[in-house]
Design a protein around this nucleic acid. Structure first.
Length: 294
DNA sequence: AAGAACTCCTGTTGGC
DNA sequence: TGCCAACAGGAGTTCT
């Protein structure tokens, strides 16, 4: 499920259960996800207090009192569920867990000092967890090359143009590159390009002038990226195939998709009259309107 | 050395 | 109904 808005939604859902609480014990139910867990993973977490829960790009970062940061990535199908200490079951997810058992693909169970339980489930196991000393985080291979956070104040026309300058790759591929802009994925790239009226096939380098400055297109795209991500965070992310939020609640931004998964539907741009089409770029679906996106 | 293809894994869906 | 190829919110590794 997770692009930046979904990861941020998960972060906000986990924060009240996790921050300020001690991890009593961790049940690690297999040796690896996408990568092996670090040595003594469960033992190193036991007894640690979570001081903060942050996000960088699509990573969740739990600051632990021992000086380590628990780094978590959800891959394609990673999900967290927060299970309250007691009380009546109110959602299918809670009911299942409170009924006692763990579900298929529940790989990690965090038991917390406040009585809450946090379960990590990941069908395809493209997610992973690792521990990194806080002081080494910035230079860690996972983070050293990560690009600009699009919801901060840095991403503007000039920066976007400079990032794209000289690139001989389609805009779609460039925007999926986490070392340029952090946190975008297949959905929000399609949505941002439509809002900016830019073709996903256009070469990324065309966002910069010969002198390297921003074009009008760069300005539109920077604005579109920031707006679509902010709106999606506000909506609790997008729910495509399952629950998006740790409390079992649904995100609802999927109802506001303009092109993603809308092949053959009319282009929503007022007065356009085009039709949304699906093409494949670098092995992944792109949805766009060839009429208004140039 | 940038850019594209391949790979990991499981589950669902749509066409025949 | 069954079978099977295509596809799914990601990204590190390996090729050209």
């Amino acid at each position: 499920m997770p692009e930046l808005p979904e990861v941020e939604t998960v972060r906000r859902g986990l924060e009240p259960a996790l921050v300020g609480t001690t991890i009593t014990s961790v049940e690690q139910r297999r040796a690896d996800l996408r990568f092996p867990f670090p040595e003594n993973f469960a033992r190193r977490l036991a007894g640690r207090r979570v001081d903060a829960l942050g996000r960088r790009a699509k990573y969740l970062l739990a600051d632990l009192d021992g000086g380590d940061v628990l780094v978590m990535h959800l891959g394609m199908t990673g999900r967290f569920t927060v299970i309250p200490p007691a009380g009546p079951a109110t959602t299918p997810g809670e009911f299942h867990h409170e009924a006692g058992g763990l579900a298929a693909h529940d790989h990690v169970v965090f038991r917390l000092g406040n009585g809450f339980t946090v379960v990590y489930n990941d069908v395809r196991r493209f997610g992973f967890m690792t521990l990194v000393p806080r002081g080494q985080l910035a230079e860690h291979p996972l983070f050293r090359a990560i690009g600009v956070e699009p919801l901060g104040n840095e991403l503007d026309a000039a920066l976007l143009a400079s990032l794209m300058a000289g690139k001989q790759t389609p805009l779609k591929a460039a925007l999926l590159d986490q070392t340029l802009v952090a946190g975008l994925g297949n959905i929000y790239v399609c949505e941002a390009l439509h809002r900016a009226r830019l073709s996903p096939r256009r070469m990324a380098g065309t966002l910069a002038t010969k002198a390297g400055g921003p074009t009008a297109a760069a300005g539109r795209l920077a604005t579109a990226i920031r707006e679509v991500l902010a709106e999606a965070v506000e909506a609790g992310g997008s729910t495509l195939r399952d629950y998006a939020q740790p409390d079992g609640g649904l995100g609802y931004f999927q109802h506001r998709f303009r092109v993603y998964d809308r092949e053959s539907e009319p282009c929503p741009t007022p007065g356009c009259g085009g039709t949304v089409q699906r093409i494949v770029q670098s092995g992944r679906s792109t949805f766009f309107c060839a009429r208004c996106q140039r």
